[in-house]
């Protein structure tokens, strides 16, 4: 497909809510980005909430090829960067009669502190 074609490839991304990340939806064909953007929501998000939309010309996306996809592999030895590696703290805090500030507890602070 040359640049003269009506059928240009666009990848469509959207986020459901204002705080959610952009997610890839699908791809569509359109002659240009202005048409692509007015096609996007009705083609792929007819039944779900949408807060924002991106269309990206596929040529502008650098992906991984089959060989390069090996780069996502890694050993399962990285507990030190996960809370999983620090689970023993729960027991320790218990000795001091304190609760654990785990993910659930910390994220619950999103409700704000007492005024």
């Amino acid at each position: 497909m040359g640049n003269e074609s009506f059928y240009q490839e666009f990848e469509v991304f959207s986020r459901r809510t204002k705080t959610s990340p952009f997610q890839h939806q699908f791809s569509l064909l359109a002659p240009n980005e202005d048409i692509a953007i007015v096609m996007a929501q009705e083609n792929f998000m007819r039944r779900e909430p949408v807060a924002d939309i991106w269309v990206v010309k596929r040529d502008n996306i650098r992906g991984l090829n089959q060989e390069e996809r090996q780069m996502v592999e890694r050993l399962d030895n990285k507990d030190y960067r996960l809370t999983k590696g620090y689970g023993y703290l729960r027991k320790k805090w218990r000795q001091y009669e304190q609760g654990m500030f785990d993910e659930k507890e910390i994220l619950s602070w999103a409700g704000g502190q007492k005024k």
Binding site: F6, Y7, P31
Partner: peptide
């Protein structure tokens, strides 16, 4: 229609 917009 397709011809018109592919030339754009």
């Amino acid at each position: 229609v397709r011809e018109a917009l592919s030339a754009r």
